[in-house]
Structures are given as C-alpha cells and as structure tokens.
Computed example of a mutant assay.
Amino acid sequence: MREQLREAYHFIFEKELLEEIAKVGVLKSVKENEKIIEIGDFVTSMPLLLEGAVKIMREDQDGNELLLYFLERGDTCAMTLSCCMGQTKSEIRAVAEMDTQLIMIPIKKMEEWTAKYKSWRNFVFESYHTRLSEMLDAIDAVAFLNMDERLLRYLKDKAKINQNETLQVTHQQIAYDLHTSRVVISRLLKKLELQNEIKLNRNNIRLLRL
C-alpha cells in the first residue's frame, strides 16, 4: 500500500503526511459497478483513490440518477469531504467505474491534518474547487446542451477515464447516467454513428474521434 500511495500522491503530500496516511488509512478494493458510498449513509471516512476510477451520482425524488463527475487516481470527493466535516448523511452515490483501490481516511484525522500540514489544506481546498467546477459543468450541460451533445461529451469523458476508445457500456446504463430513456439514447447513438463520431458494435461502442 505504501508504494501505491507514494506513486499516487508523492507530488501532493510531503513524506511525513504520506507516512501518517499509511498508518491510519484502510486499504479498500472494490469491483466495477460496486457501490462505495450510498445516499443516506453516515460518512465516517473519506476516500483517496490509488487506482481505478469512481463516478459520483445524484438522485432525484423519483429515483432517477444524474452523473456529476468522475474521480481518478490522486483525487478525493468534495461531497464526501463536506459530509465528513459536517458529520451529515451522504447526498451522493459513489460507484466504481472499474476495479478500484482506495485508502479510507478516518474523519478525526481531517481536522488534525488541516492544522498540521499545508499540503493537506491545499489538497482539500483544491478538491472543493475542482469538484465544484465539474458540478457546474454538469449543470451547464443539462441546461444548455442538446442531449446528443451531452451524450458525445459523456462518451468522450468515459473513454478518457477508462483510457480506452472502446467502451463496454449498455444503452440502458448510459440512459441512467444521463437521466433519460434507453430509447432516446439508442436513437442518438445511431445519429452519432451516421455522423462518423462513433462505431456501434454488438457489445461495445467505439469512439472514432476523441
């Protein structure tokens, strides 16, 4: 775990903080599509990603999901930080985009490290800023982009996160993430294929222009 931690965060945290994280952190491995945090859970620790990726979702009153942003190696979730600091229930759902490894940090260490380490303070503030910008982008996409534009943006983001231009994802899963119907997604995917943006195969979608 120490080596993975060093590789992912050595450019962010000083050696002394990395040692403290290794001592108190709990290594957690999750499989693709496994829930890490559920809406309504009390958050007792915050995640630091070592490898893999996590998608952060919101849910409306009807149970429909909306993708807010992705987390990659070297990231943490600002929404989780907020719940930790306020000792409130989670308002997001965190799901592994692929097989993922995290270090879970106890809440009690957050305040201590904020006072003790400048690098930790900077990391927390930068995480808030980055995630807020990504949430605003998600809101802008819903408010101002057509669904076909949102779909293409989603596919490109997903390809970047997975580091693969070929995506193993169903039309129904895309519909869940974009808060729409499978029929709409299937129609728009066909439209994107006619525009030579993607290639639809039996079990995957391949982006032709990243």
Rank of each mutant, 00 (worst) to 15 (best):
M1F: 15
M1Q: 13
R2P: 10
R2M: 13
R2G: 11
R2Y: 14
E3N: 11
E3Y: 15
E3T: 13
L5T: 12
L5N: 13
L5D: 15
L5V: 07
L5P: 15
L5S: 12
R6F: 14
E7T: 06
E7N: 13
A8S: 05
A8Q: 02
A8P: 05
Y9D: 08
Y9C: 06
H10D: 11
H10G: 04
H10L: 01
F11D: 15
F11V: 01
F11A: 09
F11Q: 13
I12G: 03
I12D: 05
I12R: 09
I12Y: 09
F13S: 04
F13E: 05
E14R: 14
E14N: 14
K15E: 13
K15D: 12
K15I: 01
E16S: 04
E16G: 00
E16L: 05
E16V: 02
E16Q: 03
L17H: 00
L17D: 02
L18W: 05
L18C: 06
L18I: 04
E19F: 12
E20K: 12
E20T: 07
E20W: 10
E20S: 07
A22W: 06
A22I: 00
A22T: 00
A22K: 01
K23W: 10
K23C: 03
K23F: 07
V24S: 09
V24R: 12
V24A: 09
G25E: 05
G25L: 02
V26W: 15
V26A: 12
L27D: 14
L27Q: 10
K28V: 07
S29K: 15
S29R: 14
S29F: 15
S29C: 09
V30Y: 11
K31F: 13
K31T: 11
E32A: 14
E32T: 06
N33C: 00
N33P: 06
E34R: 06
K35G: 09
K35D: 12
K35T: 04
I36C: 00
I37Q: 09
I37R: 13
I37H: 10
I37S: 09
I37F: 12
E38Q: 12
E38Y: 08
E38L: 07
E38D: 10
I39S: 03
I39A: 01
G40N: 01
G40E: 04
G40K: 01
D41C: 02
D41G: 03
D41I: 02
F42G: 12
F42Q: 14
F42N: 15
F42T: 10
V43G: 01
V43C: 05
T44I: 08
T44S: 14
T44D: 12
S45L: 00
S45T: 02
M46D: 04
M46V: 07
M46K: 08
P47V: 04
L48Y: 11
L49Q: 08
L49G: 08
L50V: 00
L50T: 03
L50F: 04
E51V: 05
E51Y: 15
E51C: 07
G52E: 04
G52A: 02
A53Y: 02
A53V: 03
A53H: 04
V54H: 10
V54W: 14
V54P: 11
V54D: 13
K55T: 00
K55A: 01
K55H: 12
I56P: 00
I56F: 00
M57K: 02
M57F: 03
E59D: 05
E59C: 02
E59I: 01
